[in-house]
């Protein structure tokens, strides 16, 4: 089982400096593989790098009539607009808090639920639970807001009815800065955890049953079984997902926040993407949004590089 999850460019070991002839021979041996990959690579050039070429408007004052190439350069002006904006620090903080909290709380829960599903003997029950917990993923946030209003409203919400029955004061969950972050984080976990288990379940199923049989013969306890077989078996996926999420650390869930937030909770709810939306929509700023996209990419690059290093060390230890 391999530990290396992402191969960011690293130095080629001296031992691999082999003759060009040998390299060509390896390449010829793999010709079918190159052939297979060619359509996808062409696809990447056209549909991923094509837009990135157009994304130079981040450094330009984009005018539709002049086109991407003809528009005048303005350098880092749009980046400056964003970084010097009044709420920049707060936007960054909110974005990172949401993004990290969803990862740190949501991912372990998904793994635990996946392991529980994998462990249970009750196959029908398992099918039922599996199917049910995926469902919330399909609710759009607009619908979610309706449901949350029914449950959380301080006027007649179900949860507040319970709080009041036990003598508490009703809480304005959706409009109180004290609770809003939890509302966002927990509703996201509620909606997405079940969907997240699919991946870990698939990973668990890819573990050879022989390992479990051997463990059973050795008389391993369930916890030992999970700790020494299941978890190491899905560790590469966990590490990979974590790393990829780090790369998108500044994506905190625009659709969710946009639907749930309101003016009273801007201070704890406004994120980079909602700001870009308001600023961009009002002022017709095509370039600004693209510039912020670049900014997010740079931060993602830094974080994914660091966490890849960390993971390489830690994951190795945990596997062996």
């Amino acid at each position: 089982m391999t530990t290396k999850v992402l191969a960011l460019p690293s130095k080629v070991p001296a031992a691999e400096k082999l003759s060009i002839k040998k390299l060509l021979r390896t390449m010829w041996r793999q010709r079918w593989l190159y052939f297979l990959m060619t359509p996808t690579l062409i696809y990447f050039v056209v549909f991923k790098y094509g837009p990135l070429w157009n994304a130079q408007i981040a450094f330009k004052d984009f005018k539709p009539l002049l086109g991407v190439w003809g528009s005048p350069w303005v350098g880092f002006e749009h980046f400056g607009t964003f970084i010097n904006s009044f709420y920049f620090t707060e936007l960054m903080a909110n974005t990172i808090i949401f993004s990290v909290a969803k990862l740190v709380l949501g991912l372990p829960l998904a793994v635990i639920v996946a392991i529980a599903l994998h462990e249970t003997w009750l196959l029908r029950f398992r099918t039922l639970v599996q199917t049910a917990i995926y469902l919330p993923h399909f609710l759009s946030w607009v619908i979610m807001f309706g449901v949350m209003l029914v449950i959380l409203s301080p006027g007649n919400g179900l949860l507040n009815a319970i709080i009041e029955r036990f003598g508490g004061e009703p809480i304005a969950f959706l409009t109180s800065p004290k609770y809003f972050r939890w509302v966002v984080i927990l509703s996201d976990i509620w909606k997405e955890t079940g969907w997240g288990t699919i991946l870990y379940l698939a990973a668990l199923l890819a573990i050879s049953p022989d390992l479990y049989e051997a463990a059973a013969v050795d008389g391993a306890t369930p916890l030992q079984r999970i700790w020494y077989i299941s978890l190491p078996g899905i560790l590469p996926v966990i590490v990979l997902v974590t790393l990829l999420r780090m790369g998108h650390i500044l994506e905190a869930g625009f659709n969710q926040i946009f639907v749930l937030y309101s003016i009273p909770v801007y201070s704890v709810g406004d994120i980079i993407d909602t700001w870009v939306y308001r600023q961009g929509v009002l002022n017709f700023q095509f370039s600004l949004a693209t510039a912020v996209g670049f900014f997010k990419g740079v931060i993602g690059l830094v974080l994914i590089t660091i966490s890849n290093r960390v993971a390489k060390r830690l994951a190795q230890q945990s596997i062996y």
Partner: peptide, 24 residues
């Protein structure tokens, strides 16, 4: 026309007023 920093200006304005009204 809205000011150049519309998103910030409007947020400051709206948020300030709402925070007073709600007693925050």
């Amino acid at each position: 026309q809205p000011p150049a920093n519309a998103a910030d200006f409007e947020r400051f304005y709206n948020e300030g007023i709402i925070q007073f009204v709600l007693g925050q």
